[in-house]
Design a protein around this nucleic acid. Structure first.
Length: 147
DNA sequence: GGATTGACGACAT
DNA sequence: AATGTCGCCAATC
């Protein structure tokens, strides 16, 4: 099992999780990492929020790719403080804000020009992926499901 | 192929 | 409350 395979799995898991974020909702990089962490497949996933950002950064713009900027709602992922990461290129963050506003999310701008979203209103933080059981190998044992 | 960077986050000062 | 430090590890010098 090469580490590169594990890395690839991580990318897939991230894109898969991000696609679960409902339109008009947002979550954090850290939460995506945590959700992936519930799946044993990937090592220390819950401790790698940065890698989640890397995944989105490298999200393909090729419409033909399995996961691309068109079918993965990357804009719904912001940092744990509820703010769109300023990062290197301001236009990128602004573009993200525009994409969120387009789907009904209110993005506030403070005096410093930092963009933020109210988690209380738009946050999406489930304990696990809604379709986690449906899409994965689904090899857990049935019998002890307690609601 | 070693060193730095970074769409982050938790904890320590 | 506001910085600083460290862990994580793929990508990029």
């Amino acid at each position: 099992m090469a580490r590169s395979d594990e890395a690839a799995s991580f990318f897939i898991a991230v894109y898969n999780a991000v696609q679960e974020i409902p339109e008009g909702k947002v979550t954090s990089y850290g939460h995506i990492a945590k959700l992936i962490g519930t799946q044993k497949l990937i090592r220390k996933a819950a401790q790698r929020p940065r890698q989640v950002g890397i995944c989105l950064k490298h999200l393909s713009h090729d419409p033909g790719a399995r996961h691309n900027s068109g079918n993965v709602p990357w804009q719904r992922v912001i940092n744990s403080k509820g703010m769109i990461s300023p990062r290197s290129q301001p236009s990128g963050a602004r573009n993200q804000a525009a994409a969120l506003r387009a789907e009904g999310v209110t993005v506030s701008t403070d005096a410093l020009g930092e963009l933020s979203v109210d988690f209380a209103e738009y946050g999406w933080f489930p304990d696990s992926l809604p379709s986690e059981e449906a899409s994965e190998e689904q090899e857990w044992v049935s019998g002890s499901e307690s609601e």
